[in-house]
């Protein structure tokens, strides 16, 4: 256990060393990091509690729009007397983003969680799409989200202290900051996941997943417990939404599609539903697939065929999902107690 931990730690410190000269490395790890937290969040909902949420990006969107609206000229167009919040407010808005995501989670969860698995899936899918449609269309009568144009510029937390401390250019300092910040977040989220899993909540979630009726007979309130799982996942998603908005400095409704919700599901399933390490491995594999492998494949095979493999993500995710379900439903890293 300690060996794995120190290996991971070494890797995490080695990357910045390399990244100093090649900032693209930071980009990859930051992307992986964001998706790792998202996968961990969905893992609680799907993997532990067995609730199929197909609209996970909705919470991500809410978190992202929260920070984006308040820290950009958008807020002034809604409330002319309020100026955009400066970058340092980022830290204060993180819990706010989580709060809004939790709020949406309650709104979605209360009517849906009592439904059977299949219906829950469709309803959450619908909610996810609704959020996207709302984001796309809430530029009239009142311009809240600025519609398909998206919102920019979104403030980033100040990094001048890093620039001064390490004497590096601003862009590199930003990458370095986000890299470590997300690393810290991942660490915290992993600990939270472990704590919850080995507590009465984790047990209750798994009990519900295994046998709902027996869980009720053993004193577990289905409504409350399912909602808790749902909003736990939502809060992680909302948190990373705000981080994503700050990192990209630009968001639009196109960042929050069904394809991405399914992609995160893919990460959880591929890695192993219910397994914390699995969620992280799944995030790493799928993100690398998207960023590195598919474009590379396209390039290398361009002599033979003109197919841009990056355009066929749906095919890839579909194949992954179906083959995992048929051949290895427990995922790459089976959770300890998979039957």
């Amino acid at each position: 256990m300690w060996k794995k931990f120190s290996l991971a730690l070494l890797l995490c410190l080695f990357v910045p060393y390399l990244g100093m000269s090649n900032s693209f490395l930071f980009e990859i790890f930051i992307q992986i990091g964001i998706f790792a937290v998202l996968a961990l969040g969905l893992n609680v909902v799907v993997g532990l509690a067995g609730l199929l949420d197909l609209g996970f990006m909705a919470f991500f969107a809410v978190g992202a729009y929260t920070w984006a609206i308040f820290s950009s000229p958008q807020i002034t167009s809604i409330f002319p007397s309020i100026a955009p919040f400066s970058g340092i407010w980022f830290y204060a808005f993180l819990p706010l983003a989580m709060l809004f995501a939790i709020g949406l989670g309650c709104l979605v969860g209360l009517p849906s969680l009592r439904l059977r698995g299949d219906y829950l899936a469709i309803v959450t899918l619908g909610f996810g799409e609704m959020i996207r449609v709302l984001a796309n269309n809430l530029d009239h009568p009142l311009n809240i989200t600025n519609g398909p144009q998206g919102i920019t510029p979104v403030q980033q937390p100040p990094v001048t202290w890093i620039v001064d401390w390490l004497s590096i250019p601003h862009a590199l300092a930003t990458s370095l900051f986000f890299y470590f910040f997300i690393l810290v977040l991942i660490g915290i989220i992993i600990v939270i996941n472990l704590h919850l899993k080995h507590s009465r909540f984790g047990r209750a979630w798994m009990a519900i997943r295994e046998n709902e009726l027996a869980a009720q007979a053993m004193g577990i309130s289905l409504a409350r417990t399912k909602l808790l799982a749902f909003i736990t996942g939502a809060s992680f998603s909302g948190l990373m939404g705000a981080v994503y908005a700050a990192k990209q400095t630009f968001i639009s409704p196109e960042s929050f599609t069904l394809l991405q919700s399914i992609m995160i599901l893919c990460m959880v399933i591929l890695g192993g539903a219910g397994s914390i390490a699995g969620a992280i491995v799944g995030a790493i594999v799928i993100t690398l697939l998207n960023i590195e492998i598919l474009p590379a494949l396209t390039e290398h095979l361009s002599a033979i065929t003109h197919i841009d493999f990056s355009e066929y993500q749906r095919l890839i995710f579909g194949v992954i999902l179906v083959s995992m379900m048929i051949f290895r439903p427990q995922g790459l890293i089976a959770r300890k107690n998979h039957v």
Binding site: R203, M206, A207, R209, E210, N211, L213, A214, A215, A217, R335, N337, H338, V339
Partner: peptide, 8 residues
């Protein structure tokens, strides 16, 4: 029997 199969 309705046990929680994947729990110990």
């Amino acid at each position: 029997i309705r046990l929680f199969n994947a729990l110990t």
